[in-house]
Design a protein around this nucleic acid. Structure first.
Lengths: 247, 247
DNA sequence: AATGGAGATTAACATAGGTAAGGTCGTTGC
DNA sequence: GCAACGACCTTACCTATGTTAATCTCCATT
């Protein structure tokens, strides 16, 4: 019933019923569950599968020798980890569950099989992987140029819009399972400063964040604070833009 | 005579003579030159070609509305910009020359032609693009977790090792055309602090940087300061490691 | 030789954000 | 029931880094 990948890919292109059936079939082949905080794959291992997150939140992260940890990316429902990972000999980072997650493991043969005869899927998956790269670039800008408030606002905008594309929002709210520690590891700031920054956003009525639920009463206003330009998410299928209402 | 791309790809796999001839032929088809500081492609344009930097340095960058600029990646001789860029409708960032550069433009058809019948090339190009993604991730870690000194040291290590892979170093030196302003835009720090940081590295005899030439007398020592782990560059073809001597 | 500009350097001062410590609250386990 | 814990929040203090602005050094022009 929840098909976040399909929902997301259809932001980019139209899929036939056969395409959708194929995606659902592949995703059903090998399903694994992980507990919150459990590693899905660890640095140094040889990757054997493409992982599709079908439920829950996960993250890519790296740890320095002295223990500092940086979260490099979030995987939300419908996100794929590393389409072409088969080329590499070993993982240079880890992927860990944030909440309990359900993951579909896609083998190389299943993946190749899917690409053959489904050009729409193929193209849509390339799009998804290019968007992932664009997000990584935007994070570089975020960490390099924006101050704490802008940075936090930018992250919240991005996550909200991505969740919306996957069908995981209702009105102006979404589940938001990240702890302040995880936010700090993402944005390169201390938990104390994460807290200060969230307080400031709350005081300006830009966000409501309580009981693992995030509400953004006025997305446009938050985007303005963040200097957020959604173009890097490439969600506009026909020159349609994100500030126009969706669906 | 200088074939940085081939040299680099051979770090990953062996190429046949036919493979090399093909690469050289493709690269010779459309050659363009750009002056230093000139844009190769600008945000908002529709990308028509894969760009191969054959001489000089270029960078990917993004500018915020208020003018702050972040350099997101460097392109060194032998680097390719965005293999699969044909999928996207418009650039979400710009690519600019740092020095005068020579660029080979590779059209979609030329690219497809090259992939057919040259599986080694195909695989090597995927490898190159996955390494580019890994570098982007490492930059996220760099900006998020390392302090100014570590950050600078890390960048210098990375650039030196990449230049080495492209055959652009001699002994422990390489050309280094970046201004302190550009270093600041890369590392998210003010030019004043870039200057302080470079002084500190010089004072510790970790680098010699003068007249656009960088010398790293003791790479291992600089790597230690940077908490630099070269695994993300995936340069070890047979489990060989970078600290072992190359070639 | 004088002029001008880009880049590098330095100093004096200001501040965003880090560190350390501790407190509250709710949940889990015994 | 209470101990232990994890998330969160807060305060006080400290430091890495930013800001501003002045100076210096090369080069390239004229």
């Amino acid at each position: 019933m929840r098909r976040p990948l399909i929902r997301k890919l259809e932001k980019f292109t139209r899929l036939s019923q056969a395409d959708k059936d194929m995606l659902l079939r592949i995703a059903a082949q090998r399903v694994r569950r992980f507990a919150a905080r459990e590693d899905i794959i660890h640095e140094g291992e040889k990757p054997e599968f493409i992982n599709l997150i079908s439920e829950g939140w996960a993250c890519r992260y790296k740890t320095l020798q002295d223990g500092r940890r940086q979260i490099i990316a979030f995987f939300l429902p419908g996100d794929l980890c590393d389409l072409n990972v088969f080329v590499l000999k070993e993982m240079d980072h880890s992927i860990g569950a944030i909440t309990p997650v359900v993951v579909s493991e896609i083998s190389r043969t299943a993946f190749d099989e899917m690409m053959i005869g489904h050009p729409r899927i193929t193209q849509a998956l390339w799009w998804e992987s290019l968007v992932a790269a664009a997000i990584q670039r935007e994070w570089t800008v975020n960490l390099g140029q924006r101050d704490a408030l802008e940075r936090m606002a930018h992250l919240l905008c991005e996550l909200f819009i991505r969740l919306e594309a996957a069908g995981c929002t209702s009105n102006s709210s979404c589940e938001f399972p990240l702890t302040q520690t995880e936010l700090g590891e993402t944005l390169g700031m201390s938990t104390v400063h994460v807290n200060r920054t969230l307080q400031e956003l709350r005081a300006s009525n830009l966000i409501v964040l309580k009981d693992r639920t995030l509400t953004i009463p006025n997305l446009k206003a938050l985007q303005d604070v963040a200097l957020f330009n959604p173009n890097y998410l490439h969600l506009d299928r026909e020159g349609r833009h994100l500030d126009a209402n969706e669906e």
